[in-house]
């Protein structure tokens, strides 16, 4: 192997990387928050919603979980304009991430909801709580607490999966690495640095979500 590694380009190109990191973080933040919200709504619809809504949500979840994120992204960005739905690269990337996390989140949260004993619903009703109040305070919060670790890893998976949005020219971290390697011809080094940054982001996000779990669910139930 007669190859000398060269990371000298970092001096000139670090602002490009920084901008890419910013976009990736932004995508993850918006995708994470809205995706979890969509997941909660879908989990409610599947477990307790009206009869006609359940198969619709089930079909959505199965469809998303059994197709690659890349194709979902292409369908939204290239396919939907045929229906008159035109959006920017970042909007398409965000939408794809929300739709993707929504489906996985639905399954995870539903599992948490189904683990709630039936007596809890009845106890909520006997306290004079409305159905929505019972769902929110009695069912959902403990369910979220139960499945928080699984939901956290799914959010990390979505963050890592967002590398694919560079393919519709959304200017995320991977896009930055592509740009740098096309300028410097240091392909391996560019992707190597980007990979390390992704690793750091994944570790940081995991810690952040763990901390968030502690804040959101302060020893509500002794487990």
């Amino acid at each position: 192997m007669n190859y000398t590694f060269d990371f000298g380009w970092l001096i000139e190109y670090w602002p490009v990387l920084l901008k890419g990191i910013g976009i990736t973080v932004e995508l993850t933040l918006v995708g994470g928050v809205l995706g979890v919200a969509l997941g909660i709504a879908c989990a409610w619809a599947r477990a307790l919603g009206p009869g006609w809504l359940r198969p619709v949500v089930a079909a959505y979840v199965e469809l998303i979980r059994n197709t690659p994120f890349l194709i979902q992204l292409f369908f939204i960005f290239f396919g939907l304009p045929a229906l008159g739905l035109r959006m920017s690269e970042l909007q398409a990337a965000n939408l794809a991430m929300v739709v993707n996390l929504g489906a996985y989140g639905c399954e995870i949260i539903r599992a948490g909801i189904q683990a709630t004993p039936k007596g809890q619903f009845e106890a909520g009703a006997s306290l004079g709580m409305s159905r929505l109040q019972t769902f929110w305070y009695v069912v959902l919060i403990p369910a979220l607490q139960r499945i928080w670790p699984a939901l956290s890893s799914q959010i990390v998976i979505v963050m890592l999966g967002s590398a694919a949005v560079s393919q519709i020219a959304a200017e995320d971290l991977t896009f930055a690495a592509n740009f740098i390697q096309s300028r410097t011809f240091r392909a391996f080094e560019s992707y190597f640095v980007a990979t390390l940054i992704y690793l750091a982001l994944a570790i940081a996000l995991r810690q952040l979500l763990r901390g968030l779990g502690w804040t959101l669910f302060p020893k509500r139930t002794a487990r």
Partner: peptide, 9 residues
């Protein structure tokens, strides 16, 4: 902890 896409690259 890293994207599959990066591993491919």
């Amino acid at each position: 902890g890293t994207p599959l896409l990066m591993q491919l690259f």
